[in-house]
């Protein structure tokens, strides 16, 4: 690593640049579409420009701005709950061996493997009997089904490389359990919480069918509005709502970028079998 720092640095800059281009490039046509009044092959750029798509996207009728705050609230809440549940679960799976561990791992991964629509109707019936349908709380809770696998998987990877002896040392030096958690455990697993939380946020952010079923049309998040137009081929309005839709994701990505270097072992699977 120390032998050729210049070559290494330019390699890093190059891969970084490619990564950014690869992420940003698909968004450019989306942005152009949102200002286009028609854009036909083989024109390189639209011949006419228009603000109509943005006027609609920002209008009361579209409901986009009203749902932006609600969508952020639900996704932040679902992320917080995922962390609360996912950290202890990940600790158990990453640190300990126990009977039936593989079954538990499979069950946790199941929502990622089984297509959502197959279980959506069953979940709907469960949520009705719990009285959680048509509420924001119900939608937030149901988002845990697809977010938890990511959170638990990441945390299990972190805990697999974690030495609980540090906690015992802190305790023997007189730290309270809370102090131990705050000063020893949390700093060690923070990169995992950030990566897992990012996954959880983005997965919650993109839910459609679960939100529609459990929210019953009363809880209208951005994907509900966006997918209407994406599936009907209205590229201009899809572009405008899409630009609003991706903002929080990009913002969070930028804020957490330094934790996503891939050097923190956060992407390590379940660890010890």
């Amino acid at each position: 690593m120390h032998r050729d720092p210049l070559a290494l640095r330019s390699f890093r800059v190059l891969t970084g640049a490619i990564l950014i281009v690869w992420l940003v490039l698909p968004l450019v046509p989306l942005a152009i579409w949102s200002f286009a009044r028609g854009w036909r092959f083989p024109d390189l750029l639209p011949r006419e420009w228009s603000l109509k798509a943005w006027t609609y996207a920002l209008s009361d009728t579209s409901g986009v701005l009203g749902s932006l705050g609600l969508t952020i609230f639900i996704s932040v809440g679902a992320t917080a709950l995922s962390i609360l549940v996912g950290v202890p679960a990940g600790r158990a799976l990453g640190l300990y061996k126990f009977r039936g561990k593989q079954v538990v791992e499979l069950m946790i991964l199941a929502p990622v493997i089984v297509p959502g629509i197959a279980v959506a109707l069953g979940i709907h019936s469960v949520f009705i009997s719990l009285g959680l349908t048509n509420t924001v709380a119900g939608v937030m809770l149901v988002h845990l089904v697809p977010t938890l696998p990511y959170m638990v998987l990441v945390m299990a990877g972190i805990f697999a490389n974690y030495d609980p002896a540090f906690e015992q040392q802190a305790r023997s030096l007189g730290a309270s359990p809370l102090q131990t958690l705050w000063h020893v455990t949390l700093p060690a697993i923070l990169p995992g919480i950030i990566v897992g939380g990012l996954f959880a946020f983005l997965v919650s952010w993109s839910q459609y069918i679960l939100t529609l079923l459990i929210g019953g049309g009363r809880v209208v998040t951005l994907p509900l509005l966006l997918f209407n137009f994406a599936s009907s081929g209205r590229n201009d309005i899809t572009g405008a709502i899409g630009m609003i839709y991706i903002l929080p994701g990009i913002l969070i990505l930028l804020l957490t970028a330094k934790h996503l270097s891939g050097q923190n072992g956060a992407v390590g699977g379940f660890g010890k079998p």
Binding site: H124, L213, N228
Partner: peptide
């Protein structure tokens, strides 16, 4: 007004409610 991408989604909500 609740926007759908496919009308069957609303039918499924009613169906699920009846079954529950």
């Amino acid at each position: 007004r609740v926007g759908l991408t496919d009308t069957v989604e609303a039918v499924n909500i009613v169906l699920g409610e009846k079954e529950s």
